[in-house]
Design a binder for these strands. Structure first.
Lengths: 343, 343
DNA sequence: CTCCTCTACGAAAGCGCTTACGTAAGCGTT
DNA sequence: AACGCTTACGTAAGCGCTTTCGTAGAGGAG
């Protein structure tokens, strides 16, 4: 911490304006009980001295912080950076600061990060990103979150269930269904799903939606291969290589996020496969670049920034008696990466 | 802040392990002067009670924080989110937490954010993103930063001069020159530069480099139009529309960041102009998607994550007697969006 | 056995704020 | 004129830690 012996303290402001430290505190924090004239005098003195309150002292004394914590998987990933953007903007409006940490989708790191946020006594914790299907992996996180919540902390999550706290939940399953219906509607039958690890609930939910559509169309979901890889661009490339080797007659690829879809497009191009001429590709999320790709990526739009903002709003509200859930509709956006099935 | 009356305090740990609060403190923070057996007993008790130290109290008492502040223009922008990613990763290794704020390139918001970081008594402040050419705009920021630094705070900036603090400076000018030389080498002569607002030093530097190359090639830089727009994808689209209207015979577009270049590609495609057949396009930064675009974007690579990490490293070091500068080489990456000039 | 030096620990003084409580002054009532 | 109520402010007790200083006891040197 900056050695503050050189920076003015509240008592300096109080002396300078000829009032007690209590009055100075009240004047600066806007607590009633100070006459306007005195308050103005104090503020004036503070300005002249360049006084900035020590938030640590303030938090310690008052028992409340303006800081909120945000946990994401990877801030470099546009999905999360857009969520973060929504959170930061709204937080700034509320005069709150945001502490961000990323976990690389490592459940242990995740718990540790939450613990560190608790130690920082943040006023609220926001957790973005998929949970894990395996409940035993999720358990320590749940425990930590519950303890924090019981101690009076506010928690909200986006895109994650099972944590027993307020949540903003994108329509992953309906979204998966919508995009699969779109693909099926174009006449595709030789389809593969390009998927992140099935341990993530987000992946599982989206895949569930895809299966809904397949079965509604009278297909057997087991006939549609699910290629699993890292939930990243490189993962998409890798899956396409496997697809070209093992399922060469495929006419449509349903990728379960845009990152993978972008990797798919990239690898298909390098492999000389035309999109959507020979193979159609769809994504999920609608990250900002999706519309600027060539071909423009057909995907499912999720309003990431808004989701972040809504999570913050939930966390800032008084806690309800039970966990609130906000559904966020997923909207199919058809662009140029999908077209009629080649025959 | 979470009401901590319900969560254990140091004194609870001390009681539970039958030692004084001082010893407990020492045992938990690893300060020497405690026997191993006692230390272990204390740690054990802490674990059982689920004790997490109150960092506010700790900061207040010790006068130091583990928190570092990061100021970026817009966290949703891949350039900044990749920098942030580098910072977060390295910070986690050092057991430090990061508070991020974004400013929307608004100089006033920037100053305010820095002030709020100072109030939070962060141990170091990192500022990423272009400064402003206009010194009077930059002055309040300079003032705030200096005051913080004089009070013992550590500051490091990335991609920004003029602040009189440690800095990590990408080779914007040489990079601009390199990419322009590449374009010229392909035989292009009817070139336009697609540029963000010239008030940003980053833009000015890159443009300077482009001009260096033009003049080295014996051209008059004034013959190369500079189309100015927002430093975003939409800005790129807008500039291309103007280019098509005002400079229809252009064969090459030098965009001064990837975001704008992506917008250029997008608009050229919608307008039915082939890249690189009719018009070549280059970017700057090499954000992650650049290689996955179609055509792959020729650009200048800046190692963003590394730049973030290096800035943090500088800030964590003992301050030097004078501001340190680290240059980061910019490397031309030739992909498919540039080709020989059409005749 | 005494003296001195370490080591391991405890007591207590803050760190810079907020806030409960106390009090003096001003004002309206009866 | 005496009383109560309100307003505006000061006093001082913490918030939960770290750290300086003091001290008791163990051990070695003489």
């Amino acid at each position: 911490m900056v050695r503050t012996n050189s920076s003015p303290r509240l008592i300096d402001v109080a002396h300078a304006s000829g009032v007690s430290i209590a009055t100075a505190s009240r004047a600066l924090s806007g607590t009633p009980g100070v006459s306007d004239s005195v308050a103005e005098k104090v503020r004036q003195a503070a300005r002249e001295l360049g006084y900035v309150a020590n938030l640590h002292a303030r938090s310690l004394a008052s028992g409340s912080t303006a800081t909120i914590g945000l946990v994401v998987h990877e801030i470099g990933d546009p999905y999360f950076s857009e969520i973060a953007s929504g959170v930061l903007s709204l937080a700034a409006e509320h005069g709150r600061t945001v502490q961000i940490c990323h976990t690389g989708r490592d459940p242990e790191a995740e718990v540790e990060q939450v613990r560190s946020l608790v130690a920082n006594r943040v006023g609220a914790i926001l957790i973005a990103g998929s949970g894990f299907v395996d409940a035993s992996v999720e358990a320590p996180m749940r425990f930590e979150v519950q303890r924090y919540a019981e101690a009076g902390g506010r928690v909200a999550v986006v895109g994650r269930h099972h944590l027993g706290v307020d949540s903003v939940l994108p329509d992953n399953r309906p979204g998966g269904r919508a995009v699969a219906e779109h693909i099926l509607g174009l006449g595709h039958r030789r389809i593969v799903v390009v998927s992140g690890t099935l341990e993530l609930t987000t992946v599982a939910d989206r895949l569930e939606g895809v299966r809904d559509a397949l079965e509604a169309a009278g297909l057997d979901a087991r006939d549609v291969p699910v290629l699993e890889g890292p939930f990243t661009r490189e993962g998409g490339r890798e899956c396409i290589r496997r697809m070209l080797a093992d399922h060469p007659r495929t006419t449509a690829v349903i990728a379960l996020n845009d990152d993978m879809a972008i990797g798919c497009l990239s690898q298909l191009r390098s492999s000389g496969v035309s999109v959507p001429g020979q193979v159609s590709v769809s994504g999920f999320d609608d990250v900002a670049v999706a519309q600027d790709l060539s071909p423009g990526l057909t995907t499912v739009r999720l309003p990431m920034a808004e989701m972040g903002a809504r999570a913050l709003t939930l966390a800032l509200k008084e806690p309800g008696s039970r966990a609130r859930r906000q559904r966020v509709p997923a909207e199919l956006v058809v662009r140029d990466s999908t077209g009629p099935a080649a025959r």
